[in-house]
């Protein structure tokens, strides 16, 4: 009975928002999960996990149906797929987050020099970064989320989010160096 009363008190706009997200993206989420695991029952598990994460982070979706929401959901599903693959196949090649390493700051080279090599090259380098790392770059630089918010969205620890961000910048820096950019 208590839960019945409490349910009545819950915010209807949140429920409506969730319903809209659910119906608009359920199929897209399944397809995105299938791309990663190619197994319908696992893909359904991933979609469920992703909906749980969406519910926990509903305030981060100001508009339920728009391209930003769609993209955030794709990132959530992709990361839920990595978690699932880790659970199902401990020996798989999905990168693991080590919380023992220290995430130092990574200074990127002088941008004016980097731009002399052409923006296309930098675009290409970013495209080559593993999705598990480029996703945190997206969340940080495109959506402006803090490490704590990234950890909530992806269901990882704040330290793991910080570590992924550090590695993403480190990989970019290495790629720039490999491509002849001057790095101190």
């Amino acid at each position: 009975m208590l839960s019945t009363y409490l349910t009545v008190l819950s915010e209807p706009s949140d429920r409506e928002k969730f319903e809209r997200i659910y119906h608009a993206y359920k199929d897209m989420m399944f397809r995105a999960a299938m791309k990663n695991v190619n197994n319908p029952s696992l893909a359904e598990e991933i979609v469920q996990d992703s909906f749980l994460k969406i519910l926990k982070n509903l305030s981060k979706f100001p508009r339920p149906v728009c391209k930003e929401t769609a993209h955030l959901i794709v990132i959530i599903v992709r990361n839920a797929s990595y978690d699932c693959l880790r659970r199902e196949k401990p020996g798989s090649t999905v990168p693991l987050d080590s919380e023992r390493e220290e995430a130092a700051s990574v200074n990127l080279p002088d941008i004016t020099e980097a731009l002399l090599g052409g923006v296309e090259n930098i675009v290409e380098m970013i495209n080559e970064i593993d999705k598990i790392y480029s996703d945190v770059l997206m969340l940080k630089y495109l959506y402006g989320y803090s490490n704590a918010e990234i950890s909530e969205l992806l269901g990882i620890s704040s330290k793991a989010a910080e570590m992924r961000l550090y590695r993403a910048r480190l990989i970019l820096k290495k790629k720039l160096k490999e491509n002849g950019y001057e790095i101190e």
Binding site: R31, K67, A70, V74, L115, V119, I122, S134, M138, L142
Partner: peptide, 17 residues
Amino acid sequence: LLSEILKENRRAELAEL
């Protein structure tokens, strides 16, 4: 710069989907 490049990546990813 990262923000602009990532915007482009997002567009490409959604188009692919």
